[in-house]
């Protein structure tokens, strides 16, 4: 009895979480503009998307910024994580608090403070400012996913490599990097997803003419309902779902390898 009650409650909560998303997806295939009545299956809205220059442009920007910011943030963040890992306690603590600052600070503050900076240094708001902003909020997440891997490392691995004749650079390339690779890849995927997902910071740091999907969706949604948004949502939802499943399988894959 109690078991059924739990099951019932869980189902209700999942319904609450997923029903809106599912309905959103279903109505993206609706032939008419109606959100209440089903008037037949159609890919109409997806074709509309393909013809919408503005949306295609936003998609291109979104992807470029996500890829570039993820890669650059991963480079800077991984190097930083290695450096931070080797620091003395007090210094480490100070820098870690600095790292947490953009994570805990409200997005809106991060966004507008960057906007002020860009305006202040006369950087035209657009693609570059967006990219810089995305790198900035991505770096801490890369650091936070690489650091635990470094912590798990036997601290003598690096010394062992030196002991066997590897120069410091070789030791990093052949030992440390392969060891922390899962953390680095997770960090990069995380950064990519976060960049794809971001709205608030992009909203403040972009200028006229340059838009991401999120921004386009917001400006469309503000004006009311538009089934094209349903189609975009569906694509984005499936992309994020796929990415998350890859990350998850990667993690559990590592796990089972360890347990063997």
């Amino acid at each position: 009895m109690k078991h059924y009650l739990k099951k019932f409650y869980a189902i209700l909560i999942y319904l609450f979480l997923y029903a809106p998303i599912l309905i959103l997806i279903i109505f993206s295939f609706n032939a008419s503009k109606s959100r209440g009545n089903w008037s037949g299956f159609s890919l109409h809205w997806y074709f509309e998307l393909l013809q919408d220059r503005q949306i295609l442009n936003a998609l291109y920007n979104t992807m470029m910024i996500a890829v570039l910011s993820a890669v650059i943030a991963t480079l800077i963040g991984t190097a930083a994580a290695i450096g931070i890992h080797n620091m003395k306690k007090l210094k480490k603590k100070v820098i870690m608090n600095l790292t947490y600052l953009p994570v805990v600070n409200p997005d809106i503050v991060t966004g507008l403070s960057l906007m002020i900076l860009f305006v202040f240094i006369n950087l035209r708001l657009g693609f570059l400012s967006l990219l810089l902003a995305h790198i900035t909020f991505n770096i801490p997440y890369v650091i936070l996913s690489v650091l635990p891997k470094l912590k798990q490392l036997d601290k003598h691995l690096y010394e062992a490599a030196l002991d066997l004749g590897a120069t410091p650079l070789e030791a990093y390339r052949k030992v440390i990097l392969p060891e922390i690779m899962p953390g680095v890849v997770t960090g990069m995927l995380l950064a990519f997803t976060l960049s794809l997902d971001d709205f608030v910071i992009s909203f403040f740091t972009t200028g006229s003419g340059v838009s991401t999907l999120s921004i386009t969706v917001y400006s469309m949604a503000r004006r009311g309902i538009n089934p094209k948004i349903n189609a975009i949502s569906t694509i984005l939802f499936l992309t994020v779902l796929l990415l998350l499943m890859i990350v998850n399988i990667r993690m559990s894959g590592n796990h089972s390898k360890k347990e063997r």
Binding site: I84, N86, L101, P102, S113, L117
Partner: peptide, 25 residues
Amino acid sequence: MKNKWLTYPYLVWMLIFIFIPLLLV
């Protein structure tokens, strides 16, 4: 492992894009 310079790009980045903007606010 004395590779503190590895954090320098990060520190410079955070200084410019987190710290200074907050000071501006």
